[in-house]
Each structure stands twice: as structure tokens, then as C-alpha cells.
Design a protein around this nucleic acid. Structure first.
Lengths: 203, 203
DNA sequence: CATTGTTGACTGAATATTCAATCACCGACT
DNA sequence: AGTCGGTGATTGAATATTCAGTCAACAATG
């Protein structure tokens, strides 16, 4: 049984990638509650038995899949695309909300929501998402601290504000993936107003 | 097959209540993905076959269960417990965050999160939650409008601010039920700061 | 030839749903 | 008052299907 944490990853990685893709497709198509090995196998160009050659169990596969999805998510946030901290923040918001509003990654976001909901009863999942949250939060904090140093932002409690921003993002994502009429346009403009009045306002 | 919408509900309602309770217990114990008729039956003092006497299918039961849960949720928000709009708002926030922070209704909230996540692949669920969102949002809007009339709040776009507040609540709930270290204390204080600077500040 | 990838056929347990058969109760008819 | 007939509640066993996981065998590759 190949181990994906090997330092020298052989061609295995192609296979893993294919399995992850198949799992993603099956999840998107049927939802987590109806996600079966059979259905993953159906989206896979090789046979379903082969899955057990690469993973000990359905659970093990799903745990690896979660890691795969979280890596992918962390990879897609725009990090340094401007000098001024307020621009960095705005670019980040734009990225997230455009994503939500246009429904560009709707499938991906839905998959994420379903995965995250599993944390309600799965400690492994919960740990992973908690780590993920920490990462995003500290990214936001970095930008806030930088903005304060640059004299652009007020001297707020960065930890608090970052918590707020991350929470808003999570709420927006939850809404975007589980509501018929998400209010994201309103939230986006109101978020700008919040930043304006809490971080920038000086006049 | 008894119909729960009958105007004159016979003793049937006891049975429904019992089934709902059993479903709730089973969901809390096993999570949505592992929620089976068998397990609902196990939490039920009558036999599992009886479930099919009251519902056509597992799906039908679950749909009714969702309605039951949403009713119950709407019933628990504190409506009019103060005169001043800002107090009303604060009381509402306190209620929600105390709930989250103390983990008092942790079980209930987890169940809700799991149910809501199903909306990602179930249109019936999605409609229900959308309606629920509309309800909460308009409650918040009411308080905001009142506060503006009372001259307590600034003349903001109530729809926008309400969207923001609802989204924050949803994010907080999602976090409270799916993270190991939810940041709710920070969010609560920052939410107060937001209200202060966006709605109240005049100085 | 030895290791690794790959498969289809297989299994036992669990799944949702159905069925035939009781049971308790209540109104009607004598 | 007493019995008959009907009706919903209730059940345990049975059905057909789907599930996760196994296995022996074949293919490829080095």
C-alpha cells in the first residue's frame, strides 16, 4: 500500500490525484450522506477495488480527501497583490465575494460546507477545520497589523477584528451554499462600511 | 395514515412529538450521514415499523422533522423584552451568544448545522432554510427601523445591516458547532463595537 | 521473476420498505 | 346491556437492495 506521505512520491501521486478528483465528483453529485465507495468508484476510471489498494478504509480515504481539499483552499487565497494594507484587504474580500456571488466555485464551496458540517460529529474533521480557521485568521491579522504599522488602520484589537472578519466569511459561505437567495451583495457593501467606520474613519 | 395538519389533532400529536424526539436523539447521537430508520427506531419506545405507519418514507419523515426543528427555533428568539431598540438588539445578541458560548444548546445547534448543510444537495431543505432566514432577517430589520424612528440609531440601510447581522450569526453558529476553539467571545465584543460605530456613534 | 497495479466476483452485514397479523377501542345495532 | 364490525395503532418477521470490505487471479513493468 503506497503511502502518500512518502518523501519521494512516485507516480502514485497521479493516482491519488485521480482518486481525489473522483471523490470530489461523487461528493458533488450525491452529497456527503450518500457518498459511497461504489459511487466514488463510478467516477474513477479504474475499478473500485483499487481504492482499497491505496486506502485502508472509506474513512481513511475521506480523511485524506479532506486534507486535499483544505490544501487546495489555502492555495487559492490571494496573498500579496498590493502594497497598502487596505488594498490587500479589499482584494481579499473581492476575491471571496466575487467567488460567492458569481457562483463560480459553487460546487467546490458546497463540497466544503458539507465536509465542514461533518465536524459536528467527527473530531478528526473538526481538528482539521479548526487548524484551517487559525490559518485564515492569522493571515487576516497579518494584514491588519501591517495596516496599523503603516498608519492606515486605527489601532484596533487585531485578534478581535480578525475573528469578526473570518466569522463573516464563514457565514457568507454557509449562506451562499445553503440558501436560495443569499444576501451577499448586501453583506459585501456592509462589510466595506464596517471596515470604513472601524478601521479607516478618521475624518 | 394520520395527517398532522388536521385541524383537530387527535392523540396523534403525542406520537409525532415522540417520533420527532426520537429522530432528534438519533441525529444527535449519530450525525446526519449515519441517521437510519433503525437508529430512529432505537430511540423510539414503539417499534420501527410504526414509523412507516405515520410517514410514507424516511425522506418524508426527515422533511417533517426539519419543519419541527425550524418551528422550535423560531419559538426561542426573545421578541419584545425592552422598549429601546438598542436594548432589544443587545438582548437578542446576548441570547444568541450566551447560547453559543455556554454550549447550552450545543446538541440542538449541531443538529441544526447538520440539517442546514443538507441544503447543499436538497432543494426542499434549502427552501425551508431560506424562509427561516427571511424571517430572522425581517425581525432584525424591524428592530433597526424602530431604532431609527426612535432616533436612537443612525439612518442606515436597514436591509443591509440586517443582512450583515444575520450573516454574522450564521457564521458564529457554524463556527460554534464545527470548531474546537470558536472565537465567539471576540466576535461578540466586536459585534458590539460594530453596532456602536455604525448605528449609535454620534460623538 | 518479483513486485506492483488492477480487476471482477464475492460476502456478510446493514439498509429502507412491506406485509400479515394482532390489539385496543368505539359506535352501531339488537 | 351485549355483541358485531370497523379502524387506527402496533408489531415481528420478511423482502429486496446496497453497503464496505476481501480475495484470488491476471497484467504490466522493471
Amino acid at each position: 500500500m503506497p503511502n502518500r506521505t512518502d518523501l519521494f512520491e512516485p507516480d502514485t501521486d497521479d493516482t491519488r490525484e485521480a482518486i481525489m478528483k473522483a471523490t470530489y465528483d461523487a461528493l458533488s453529485k450525491h452529497g456527503y450522506a450518500d457518498l459511497t465507495i461504489q459511487r466514488i468508484g463510478d467516477e474513477f476510471d479504474k475499478s473500485k477495488s483499487l481504492l482499497y489498494h491505496h486506502y485502508d478504509s472509506k474513512d481513511a480515504l475521506l480523511v485524506d480527501f479532506l486534507a486535499f481539499m483544505l490544501e487546495r483552499m489555502e492555495g487559492t487565497i490571494p496573498l500579496e497583490e498590493a502594497d497598502a494594507a487596505d488594498d490587500r484587504l479589499r482584494i481579499g474580500f473581492d476575491h471571496v465575494f466575487t467567488d460567492f456571488l458569481t457562483g463560480d466555485n459553487e460546487e467546490f464551496n458546497r463540497a466544503m460546507t458539507e465536509l465542514r458540517a461533518q465536524s459536528a460529529h467527527d473530531d478528526t474533521f473538526r481538528e482539521q477545520f479548526t487548524k484551517n480557521d487559525r490559518y485564515f485568521k492569522s493571515r487576516v491579522e497579518d494584514v491588519l497589523e501591517e495596516g496599523i504599522e503603516q498608519g492606515i488602520f486605527r489601532d484596533v484589537d487585531t485578534e478581535r477584528v480578525a475573528s469578526m472578519i473570518v466569522t463573516i466569511m464563514q457565514g457568507a459561505m454557509f449562506q451562499a451554499t445553503t440558501s436560495t437567495e443569499p444576501d451577499l451583495e448586501a453583506v459585501k457593501t456592509e462589510l466595506d462600511a464596517y471596515v470604513q467606520s472601524r478601521l479607516l474613519a478618521d475624518d
